[in-house]
């Protein structure tokens, strides 16, 4: 498989109101394969959102290169049309669903992207219906967005991106403002988009539980890549994560705590039930050993 997104020594900085220079993204070189589900973790101000906004040219990098599907975004002869084509291919869903919805009717909003692309009316109709079907919001097609729940609104926002038929979707803390139910709805939708429709997913989050569902986890710190690997590889390095000011999944934290008491449990179990079974087993064994 080929890399859909590739960055080389990417840097971006901005100035604060007190004229202090902040290096938000510092020398980031990564490759993301087509069809991968990547979670990007990091403390507030670690540069993860800035990094995402560089990928579809909402922000222009200071130095370094970005390649989307082999095409260099940062080359000087890139045209405005190329940038819009990249934005179509790399869709982006943001944190606050209210601030992404443009129209007063759900289906009109989903149609907004394809309308901008100049797609013929009947083709837009088909795409809108498909997109709403994919996120399970078909019933609400004629509803007003402000009467929907947070999770539903966010799914409408996702449908608006799907209707543009992107190859990759970036979720910029899209679950952060939702209640647990809404978060589950959105996470299930994201996972389905990746597994069933083969979309490349970049999921920026600070919920560890969500990151465990990804194929790959990238941890950012001070604008650079701090850790990069599978969830199992990353979350077993508990001390390093704590060092970066991050939490670990609750199951891992629990088993890590037991290990410090002298047990030897694996840290890479992220589901509650297997974790409970394994722990109970180990505790019983410890008790029988110490009788």
């Amino acid at each position: 498989m080929s890399a859909i997104i590739k960055t080389e020594h990417l840097c971006y900085s901005y100035h604060t109101e007190e004229n202090k220079k902040v290096q938000a993204v510092n020398d980031v070189s990564i490759e993301i394969e087509e069809g991968q589900f990547v979670a990007i973790l990091g403390h507030n101000g670690s540069g993860k959102s800035t990094f995402a906004k560089l990928l579809n040219m909402i922000l222009t990098p200071e130095s370094g290169k970005i390649f989307i599907d082999g095409k260099e975004l940062t080359s000087p002869d890139i045209t405005e049309d190329d940038i819009y084509d990249i934005r179509r291919q790399i869709g982006m869903v943001f944190q606050n669903p209210d601030n992404q919805i443009v129209a007063t009717i759900v289906e009109e909003d989903v149609a907004f992207g394809p309308e901008n692309l100049g797609i013929p009316s009947d083709e837009i109709r088909k795409r809108v219906d498909n997109a709403l079907e994919t996120v399970g919001m078909k019933k609400y097609a004629r509803h007003a967005p402000h009467k929907l729940s947070g999770g539903q609104k966010q799914r409408v926002a996702i449908a608006g991106i799907i209707a543009m038929m992107p190859r990759c979707i970036i979720f910029d803390e899209s679950t952060a403002m939702l209640d647990p139910l809404g978060r589950r709805e959105v996470m299930d939708t994201i996972e389905r988009l990746n597994r069933k429709d083969g979309k490349t997913v970049l999921h920026i989050t600070h919920y560890m539980g969500e990151a465990t569902r990804a194929d790959r986890v990238i941890v950012m710190r001070h604008g650079s890549v701090y850790m990069d690997g599978t969830p199992k590889e990353i979350f077993t390095r508990v001390d390093e994560l704590w060092e970066a000011g991050l939490e670990v999944p609750q199951t891992t934290e629990f088993m890590h705590g037991l290990n410090e008491l002298g047990l030897s449990l694996p840290l890479d179990i992220f589901e509650t039930e297997p974790c409970a079974e394994k722990s109970a087993e180990a505790i019983l064994k410890w008790i029988s050993d110490h009788k």
């Binding site: 819009y84 934005r87 943001f94 601030n99 797609i119």
Partner: peptide, 21 residues
Amino acid sequence: ELSTAMECRCYRGGEGRTRMS
């Protein structure tokens, strides 16, 4: 935020825009 989201959805004014309905 809305303007960023609109840019991400390829909004570039009325030119070349089609309508669903």
